Simulated scan of single mutants.
Amino acid sequence: MEFKGSLHHHVKQTSTPKAMSQRFDAEIASGSLFVPQEQLNGFSFPLLPVITQQDPSLIQSFAWGLIPGWAKNEDIKKMTLNAKIETLHEKPAFKDVLTQRCLVIANGFYEWQWLDSKGKNKVKYEIGLENEALFAFAGLYSHWVDAHTGTLKSTCTIITTAANELMASIHNIKKRMPVILQPKDEQAWLHQASITGFAYPYQVPLVAKAMNEHYRLF
């Protein structure tokens, strides 16, 4: 059974392109194909639907796992699925793209609650808004050119912050959660509002349900 990663490494996007387009008042970019999926594992570096501050009227597909422009290869993406909001200004992978804001579209994410101190017994939870409504994670993006092939690759990362009370009870070891933007603040994020204003206690009302999936590792 695979446990690699955590909440900010497994997201849900089961809405149709039409629903995304209507919710975010944006067109699906030419060539961007989104297949509804119950679970997208970050460590497979899937394409996610994003809206950038550069093209706010388009929903594009960017690979999950940010590759900064200076990277010599793609290896760093394993470490950049998420970006801690508290250290964005310090980390080399993120500090040069702080103004390259994006919305990462989803309608859920997953977390495993540890039932013992070593994580050998876990319960899977699905977390999101009421009625599985679409929302936007706060994200950053980058355009990277492979020096060997000349291929341009667009990638993104999801911002995380300290957990609220609900998430601290589920993500009960690291106690983190992704930054889910309040709808009224989505444009503010894209238009360079202060990053510190989106750290916890900034939050949206989340709901969680156990998936009745218990895992044991021996």
Rank of each mutant, 00 (worst) to 15 (best):
H89Q: 03
M20T: 02
L115N: 14
S57E: 14
I51F: 06
K153R: 15
G65V: 10
Y202D: 01
K78R: 14
I105S: 07
F198H: 01
I105G: 01
F94M: 03
V207H: 13
T87P: 00
L48S: 11
A63R: 15
C156W: 06
K124S: 14
F43I: 14
K77M: 13
H9G: 13
A63Y: 14
F198D: 02
A193K: 03
L115A: 12
T87Y: 02
A188T: 05
W112E: 08
M79N: 14
A71W: 02
V179K: 00
T80R: 07
T87A: 03
Q203W: 07
F24V: 02
I105Q: 03
R101K: 03
A162R: 00
L7S: 08
P49Y: 08
Q13W: 05
P17K: 09
I159C: 04
I180K: 03
D116M: 08
G65M: 10
Y202C: 01
L81T: 09
A210E: 15
Q37T: 15
M1T: 13
Q192I: 00
Q192S: 05
L152Y: 07
L181D: 00
E86G: 04
P49R: 03
H9I: 06
A29M: 06
M1V: 14
T149P: 13
S154D: 10
T157C: 13
K153Q: 12
L98I: 02
K18V: 13
S21I: 10
G139S: 12
N172V: 07
L103H: 03
K95Y: 00
V104I: 11
S169C: 09
L33Y: 11
P205W: 07
W144F: 11
K184V: 12
A133I: 06
T161I: 01
A210W: 13
H8Q: 12
E130P: 08
L103I: 04
Y200T: 08
Q37G: 10
P17Q: 08
Q192R: 07
H171K: 06
Y202G: 03
N121W: 13
A133G: 11
K175R: 14
V123I: 15
T161L: 05
A19Y: 01
I180N: 01
I59M: 10
K174M: 07
S194I: 01
S142L: 06
K124D: 10
E213Q: 15
A93H: 01
T99V: 07
N164W: 01
T196W: 04
H143G: 12
I105P: 08
I59P: 03
Q187F: 05
V207P: 04
Q182I: 07
Q182W: 04
A29V: 04
I158Y: 01
T14D: 05
I173R: 15
Q22W: 11
K84S: 02
R216Y: 15
C156N: 06
T151Q: 15
Q53K: 09
A208N: 10
V97S: 04
L115G: 12
C156G: 08
R216A: 15
K124L: 15
W64G: 02
L134N: 08
G31L: 02
A208G: 11
H89A: 11
G128S: 04
F24C: 11
F135P: 01
V179S: 00
A19H: 08
L134S: 10
V11Q: 08
K72R: 12
L58K: 13
G69A: 10
L40T: 13
A208W: 09
S15H: 01
C156F: 07
I67N: 01
T14H: 07
N164E: 05
A162F: 00
L206M: 09
I127T: 10
E27D: 13
I76F: 03
D96A: 01
A29Q: 05
L181N: 02
